[in-house]
Design a binder for these strands. Structure first.
Length: 242
DNA sequence: TAATATGATTGAAT
DNA sequence: ATTCAATCATATTA
């Protein structure tokens, strides 16, 4: 029953040609991706989907036909036998029921394998990994700035993530992905990121300096820790990710 | 074109 | 639910 719903949703078992566009729209919505989309890839996807759909329909029809043929055959057989021995209509009904059950279980298998094919197609074409684009320069700047100024605890809260997402014009989950990747890759070898770390630390230090110079009193509101002296070191032998 | 960088997904652990 | 670690699929660089 689930399978039926799914096939219907994918437009496989729906109406002939109209279903395709509906499924396509659903797929596009599910991919959630950017506005400037496909055309080439998407039509490919649709072509494959309709191929699946065609196979499904022909198979289904074949099964139905076979089922009908078989039942009539059995009925004829029973009728034949009814001349030599009495056969109750109940018995006939029972036989027909058995046949139908058998064939519907076969149909189930067909539906299942069709579902599988659709799922594979989906993961093949709609996987966001295939359409990966790098974030623009300033977005990564913003993210890196946050990361290196919170190096001792680079876990932005939900609100912070939302803010970053807005600033970078990406989604919150993209922010989460970015921080996940950054944390693990930074930890994996700190040496490779040393330059970057120093650079951002220096930048925030300069920022703080200019702010304090412009203002009246020395203060560092947005840099709870790290960020040592202005000039150079900023080595952080400190422990990082817990 | 090989090597590396990077965003996304998956599965396990918590 | 969130994070980590590994991995995938693509992008970028050397």
């Amino acid at each position: 029953m689930r399978l039926d719903n799914m096939l219907l949703a994918e437009g496989v078992s729906g109406p002939e040609k109209g279903g395709g566009s509906a499924a396509a729209a659903a797929a596009a919505a599910a991919s959630g991706g950017v506005g400037a989309d496909n055309s080439a890839e998407h039509s490919d996807y649709r072509a494959k989907l309709s191929q699946i759909r065609q196979i499904y329909h022909t198979e289904l029809e074949k099964y139905e036909q076979a089922c009908n043929e078989f039942t009539t055959h059995v009925m004829n057989l029973l009728r034949e036998q009814s001349r030599t021995r009495p056969i109750s209509p109940k018995e006939i009904e029972r036989m027909v029921g058995i046949i139908h059950r058998k064939f519907s279980s076969i149909q189930m298998q067909l539906k299942q394998s069709t579902c599988e094919a659709v799922m594979i197609l989906r993961s093949r074409f709609l996987d966001a990994r295939r359409k990966r684009r790098n974030f623009n320069k300033q977005a990564t700047e913003i993210l890196n700035e946050y990361f290196y100024s919170h190096l001792s605890n680079p876990y932005p809260s939900e609100e912070a993530k939302e803010e970053l997402a807005k600033k970078c014009s990406i989604t919150v989950s993209q922010v989460s992905n970015w921080f996940g990747n950054k944390r693990i890759r930074y930890k994996k070898n700190i040496g490779k990121f040393q330059e970057e770390a120093n650079m951002y630390a220096a930048r925030t230090a300069v920022n703080a300096a200019s702010v304090s110079a412009h203002g009246s009193q020395a203060n560092s509101p947005s840099t709870p820790n790290s960020a040592g002296g202005y000039p150079s070191p900023c080595y952080q032998p400190d422990r990082r990710i817990q």
